[in-house]
């Protein structure tokens, strides 16, 4: 767990420069850069999911609950009180963390399939509430973020490029949080819980508290990202932001495709999955509804059957293969 070598630092710096400069290669208001924005946002979301699922192996299927809470919190604060989304984002994070605490308390003793079921239901509870509490959320018809003069203060931009940098910053922040947790005492404890919860308790790990802390951090970050989503799309409805397939499963899938429990996994996963999905949407949706979703599902199944540890495991696997080849 030592720091990075000078060569790795250089690589990282180059990568950062490339990531920052990338939007200039795209048409400023084109489709490509929007997809890139979404990919970064979903990478950050998958990274937030990775904190509980990847480190503690608590497989949540309900992170859409926090995401939706975040999207609605900042939007409603903006509509009703004119509060800037920057503050709204903090309020969202606080509410998202509180929601995570609320659902963690009864479900933290659950493991594996049981935990997945309970979180799935929690996400659905939020979706039903979002749809039926029309007075607050606008109900199934959705809600629009009021347009204003593009300004940084209101987190609305003339150029998609600026949104891109915002998403990039968000991804960097969430990834840094992930890495910091992974290397901290919290990270060691989460890993101990994942690998043997009883043994962890016996040698002094407060497993309940540890899992709740991780869940709250993850929920708060996811909610903050919900705010970014709202400010980026300007319009959303409960079925989108609280959706199982559209949010919860997608976050998870991106992390899994890239490599669950690793910092680079969600990023690789998002850069692969989101453009692919958009591409499938464009190519197929003219012909038949559902085809791109079908591709999405097939991809998930394929990844799980071929390499459930995702892209991140393919490198080492190839190396091993090559080494074997050498020996022969």
């Amino acid at each position: 767990m030592s720091g990075l070598s000078p060569r790795q630092w250089t690589g990282l710096a180059l990568l950062a420069a490339l990531a920052i400069a990338l939007p200039f290669a795209f048409e400023p208001r084109g489709y490509g850069i929007r997809i890139l924005c979404l990919a970064l946002l979903f990478a950050a979301m998958a990274q937030a999911w990775n904190i509980v699922a990847g480190l503690a192996n608590q497989i949540s299927l309900g992170h859409a609950a926090f995401f939706g809470i975040g999207a609605y919190t900042s939007t409603l604060l903006l509509i009703h009180f004119g509060i800037t989304p920057w503050l709204g984002m903090f309020a969202a994070a606080i509410l998202g963390g509180a929601a995570a605490l609320l659902i963690s308390l009864p479900t933290m003793r659950l493991r594996g399939h049981y935990f997945a079921l309970a979180t799935l239901a929690f996400g659905e509870v939020m979706r039903v509430i979002g749809n039926s509490w029309g007075g607050l959320t606008g109900g199934p018809v959705g809600i629009s973020v009021p347009f204003a003069q593009p300004s940084l203060a209101l987190m609305q931009f003339r150029e998609t490029r600026s949104s891109y940098w915002l998403m990039l910053a968000a991804l960097v922040v969430v990834t840094l949080v992930f890495v910091a947790i992974k290397r901290s005492r919290l990270g060691y404890r989460l890993r101990a819980i994942k690998e043997n919860a009883d043994a962890a308790e016996v040698i002094g790990v407060d497993t309940t508290r540890t899992k709740i802390i991780a869940a709250v951090i993850s929920g708060a970050l996811t909610a903050a990202l919900g705010t970014l989503y709202a400010q980026f799309q300007f319009f959303f409805d409960p079925d989108t932001v609280f959706g199982v397939a559209s949010v919860s499963v997608r976050m998870a899938m991106i992390a899994i495709v890239g490599g669950i429990g690793t910092a680079a996994g969600p990023i690789l996963g998002a850069l692969f999955v989101i453009p692919l999905e958009e591409f499938a949407n464009q190519v197929f949706s003219a012909q038949a509804a559902g085809l791109s979703q079908l591709v999405f599902g097939l991809l998930l199944i394929l990844v799980i059957l071929i390499e459930p540890r995702g892209f991140m495991a393919i490198g080492p696997r190839l190396q091993r293969l090559l080494r074997k080849g050498d020996r022969r």
Partner: peptide, 20 residues
């Protein structure tokens, strides 16, 4: 396989069947 794999295999199956 680990539970993650089990969970998401059937979740993937759900998506495939529904959209098929």
């Amino acid at each position: 396989a680990p539970e993650v794999a089990q969970i998401f295999l059937t979740v993937g199956l759900l998506i495939v069947l529904e959209n098929a």
